[in-house]
């Protein structure tokens, strides 16, 4: 029971991270119908930028743990969001009118560029996050110990998802994003500046991905330049699991995948951990390609 509970909370924390990354995939896919393969690498960049800012600025000392972390998260999100916008302008914007798969190849190219740029800048070895940032507190829930960081990560990702959901559903700009995802042509006729919407999507998605990268750094303590690839694939799986293009779907899919993976690794086989997500992906695409909450059924995949 105790192990189950530990795996469950671990799965929830990792699932929250997947969900944050999945949101970037799903938002871009919703508006542009493009799998942004470089998104996983933006996540990596978030982790590395977080490390650099953390070690170079000593925010915790001057602002205290809470505000220091908050400022750190905001800075990482802003920077990664900026890189996301630049990525779109350079690699995707010239391809808006091209066949869809051209943009996919361009995205793969961008992914390779980012990954190798990170490797050339930071080196190929694992980088270690300083271990003394967060107080190591263990909280008892129902008599079972849970590390504070797990709860913090889950809370932070739920908070961000909630904020995004509110933004998308309740504000005018959010409505514009939804409209552009529904039908770009019609949205344009209604006076929505679709280019601005796309830019915004490429700001928000990578910003969330960058925050997720920082969380992974804090949670596992070490980061590597290739990690974006596997996280990206899993988050994409999560997006499909929930129904691609569907924002609540990405959240549900991410958390579900995190839990499935944690429990699968614990009770089936740890050696196959990374393969579990791909099995889930293939099964979903074969049996329910629209995902669990999928509503976009207009297009046959």
């Amino acid at each position: 029971m105790e192990e189950f509970f530990q795996q469950l909370t671990n799965g929830l924390a990792v699932g929250g991270i997947y969900a944050l990354i999945a949101l970037g995939y799903t938002m871009v896919y919703g508006v542009l119908k493009l799998i942004n393969f470089a998104h996983g690498d933006l996540f990596t960049i978030g982790a590395y930028l977080g490390l650099t800012l953390l070690t170079s600025m000593s925010l915790m000392d001057s602002l205290g743990v809470f505000f220091g972390l908050l400022l750190l998260v905001l800075m990482v999100m802003g920077l990664v969001g900026l890189i996301g916008v630049l990525l779109d302008q350079i690699a995707y914007k010239p391809l808006r009118q091209s066949p869809r798969l051209s943009a996919v190849v361009s995205a793969l190219g961008a992914s390779i560029v980012f990954q190798n740029a990170v490797m050339l800048i930071y080196g190929a070895r694992f980088q270690v996050y300083p271990q003394d940032i967060l107080p190591r507190i263990v909280i008892n829930i129902f008599g079972m110990p849970v590390p504070l960081i797990r709860i913090m990560i889950l809370m932070a990702s739920i908070f961000m998802m909630g904020a995004l959901y509110f933004f998308i559903q309740r504000t005018k700009v959010g409505t514009a994003i939804r409209a552009a995802a529904e039908d770009q042509g019609a949205a344009r006729l209604m006076g929505i500046d679709v280019n601005r919407v796309i830019m915004l999507v490429f700001l928000i998605g990578p910003a969330l991905g960058g925050a997720a990268g920082l969380m992974v750094g804090l949670y596992y303590g070490q980061i590597n330049f290739t990690m974006g690839w596997i996280y990206g694939l899993k988050a994409f799986t999560a997006a499909i699991l929930g129904g691609i293009g569907n924002i609540p779907g990405a959240m549900v899919g991410g958390i579900l995948l995190g839990v499935i993976e944690a429990l699968g690794a614990a009770y089936i086989s740890i050696a196959w951990k990374d393969a579990i997500a791909f099995f889930v992906l293939i099964l979903i695409l074969i049996f329910r390609p629209t995902g669990l909450l999928g509503e976009r059924v207009a297009e046959k995949i």
């Binding site: 799998i35 996919v104 994409f236 799986t237 393969a275 997500a277 791909f278 293939i282 695409l285």
Partner: peptide, 25 residues
Amino acid sequence: RPIIHLRGDYLLIVTIGLVEIVRIA
């Protein structure tokens, strides 16, 4: 057989999954 009908980018991602599964196996 079961994935061949998938549209372009979905097929791409499934085949990536496939090669990873084979490597892990």
